[in-house]
């Protein structure tokens, strides 16, 4: 070993080529992600003539259309996330703890929702719950009604329902993984000690699933804040969210600076939620 200590470093060791491997991914990230993002941020603070214009940023922040969109975005995403958590939890408990033939097939079928474009669910909903959809047509025929009685699809609740349908699997997946790790011995011990099923769910199963609920819920919140296809496809009157407002300002009104200002706020909101998710996940060891 003493001999090894005095050996001169080899040329290969001096060059240490490993450190240069950071360049290709960093360049790719900069080109595809950070540069376009930087352009949006830059555009948000420059007017059409290329002059710095912070006043416009402040004006947009106080504008009614922006505040409405912000409120809509938060309301819909919070409601949809709550719905996803409830649906995911109920489905997860049934699939994981109520033995029935075909539970695995059902779990996989629910998974396929993740693979589908979000607006397809909306399209399917118009066939079922739309004004001329199966449900309304059936009710109108059965009760001889003149107008469609079910009229929620083209409202905030239609968007929430579609988002719950699309994003519940994002809660269900981690929950099923967490439930599979719950020691069945704990459930049995609790049951023998006199605990009924609801108490077992509340005091034994749910505490073990909290990290999965937080992770899945945060992901849903993140995705629903940025959801565009569902809101556009439903086209509910007055239901404008931040992504839809960006689209509207940029494509329909060609107000690029306003679109970029809203985009910057949307990005800040998303990054804030992502930071919250990472913080919660880190604290819980997810």
């Amino acid at each position: 070993m003493a001999d090894a200590a005095v050996l001169p470093a080899t040329p290969a060791a001096r060059r240490a080529p490993g450190r240069f491997w950071i360049v290709p991914p960093a360049a790719l990230l900069a080109l595809l992600f950070f540069y376009p993002l930087a352009l949006i941020v830059q555009q948000a603070f420059l007017d059409d003539s290329g002059m710095a214009n912070v006043a416009e940023f402040v004006r947009v922040l106080h504008a009614r259309f922006f505040l409405n969109a912000l409120i809509n975005t938060i309301t819909i995403s919070v409601a949809a996330t709550a719905g996803c958590l409830i649906v995911g939890l109920v489905l997860g408990l049934i699939l994981a703890f109520v033995p029935f033939p075909g539970s695995g097939v059902i779990a996989r079928l629910i998974d396929t929702f993740i693979a589908l474009p979000t607006f397809l669910v909306t399209l399917a909903f118009t066939f079922i719950y739309g004004s001329a959809g199966m449900l309304n047509a059936g009710l109108m025929e059965v009760f001889s009604l003149q107008a469609p009685p079910v009229d929620f699809l083209y409202s905030t609740w239609g968007v929430v329902l579609a988002e719950v349908t699309v994003y519940s699997p994002f809660v269900l997946r981690p929950l099923l993984a967490a439930f599979s790790l719950v020691d069945r011995g704990q459930i049995e011990a609790a049951s023998v000690l006199g605990a009924r099923p609801f108490r077992i769910v509340r005091q034994v199963i749910l505490p073990a699933a909290v990290p999965a609920l937080i992770a899945g819920g945060s992901l849903c919140l993140l995705l629903t804040v940025n959801e565009f296809g569902i809101v556009l496809f439903i086209g509910a009157k007055g239901v404008i969210t931040l992504p839809l407002l960006i689209y509207s300002k940029a494509i329909q009104e060609s107000a690029y600076q306003v679109a970029c200002i809203i985009a910057v706020i949307n990005i800040a909101l998303s990054l804030g939620l992502f930071g919250l998710y990472r913080f919660a996940a880190g604290r819980l060891g997810v």
Binding site: G185, E188, A189, S191, V192, R196, Q203
Partner: peptide, 20 residues
């Protein structure tokens, strides 16, 4: 009867204590 109405106590191999 369901397990919770049988008035038993049980101890299993892996203890099955509630970790939280």
């Amino acid at each position: 009867l369901p397990p919770y109405e049988r008035g038993l106590g049980m101890v299993v191999q892996n203890y099955a204590l509630f970790p939280h």
